[in-house]
């Protein structure tokens, strides 16, 4: 069989395999990882009414994986009655996702400017995170819609990183926060991740610079389970069962064929 034909057949069988959970739905319970449980417990340990910073920092590319995690952080912050500010320091796409998240949650009892503020996008990643941590009002003059923050009661309480009780980082890579916020201010931070950055961020969790860490879509599904709802991350994990079995099967079958051809020769 031609290589290109084989490749196309594999692609077709892959998409068929991943469509099976929608035709034959299965619902396998997900156990909770220690790093996810630590993230949840850390948020639970912060007193109600504290000020939280929720960071939405992912592009449209990684939104399917990171957005459910950031949304879970937002829901947990509201459940704990935290006052919160929402920021974006790297991907401007996340500003619109943050607006979408705010529109999807129940903000009863929350007043804009007094209990929550959406600050918008500050380019520069590490540079803007450092500037924000040092002097919030030196960097931030307006919110995401261009309104002045000077008269907002919540923003009058936040002058620097020291005024924020917990950092909920809904970003695909929270390393700039660790280097620019944890190191100087010893901040309490929990982080989302996309699966490929989980490994490198795990060393920071292990060294207790991060108090909790979610492992991509799996971590998002675990966190949703702890909060008591099944969101997009749980739906993704149902598909992951089939995709991972497909990959393992492809590796095994491919190697069996390879070794059998080698023996024949």
């Amino acid at each position: 069989m031609e290589a290109s034909t084989l490749r196309k057949l594999i692609h077709l069988s892959f998409i068929v395999a991943l469509s099976l959970p929608f035709i034959f739905p299965i619902n396998i319970p997900i156990s909770v990882n220690k790093s996810t449980q630590d993230a949840y417990n850390t948020v639970e340990s912060i007193p109600e009414g504290s000020i939280a910073l929720i960071n939405f920092d992912f592009s449209t590319q990684s939104a399917p994986e990171v957005y459910p995690q950031a949304l879970a952080f937002l829901k947990h912050a509201i459940r704990r009655h935290f006052k919160f500010v929402i920021t974006t320091f790297e991907s401007p796409d996340a500003v619109l996702y943050a607006k979408q998240a705010l529109a999807s949650v129940d903000l009863t009892g929350y007043k804009y400017g007094k209990d929550y503020v959406h600050l918008g996008y500050f380019p520069g990643k590490e540079t803007s995170i450092s500037a924000f941590g040092r002097d919030v009002h030196g960097l931030v003059k307006t919110d995401a819609d261009g309104s002045s923050i000077v008269d907002m009661p919540l923003m009058q309480q936040i002058q620097s990183a020291k005024d924020i009780s917990i950092w909920l980082i809904g970003s695909y890579n929270s390393q700039p926060f660790i280097t620019q916020i944890y190191a100087p201010y010893n901040a309490i931070m929990i982080s989302a991740s996309d699966g490929s950055s989980y490994q490198s961020l795990y060393t920071y969790y292990q060294s207790k610079q991060l108090k909790g860490l979610l492992n991509g879509a799996r971590g998002g599904a675990e966190y949703e389970g702890l909060l008591g709802y099944a969101g997009q991350a749980k739906a993704i994990m149902n598909v992951q069962n089939f995709s991972h079995v497909f990959f393992i099967g492809a590796i095994v079958i491919g190697n069996i064929i390879y070794f059998r051809r080698g023996k024949k020769q």
Binding site: S19, E65, G195, G216, A217
Partner: peptide, 13 residues
């Protein structure tokens, strides 16, 4: 693998 199939899963969902 988990990350890229998550992106694909989003489209399939």
């Amino acid at each position: 693998v988990m990350v890229r199939t998550s992106y694909l899963s989003g489209r399939l969902i």
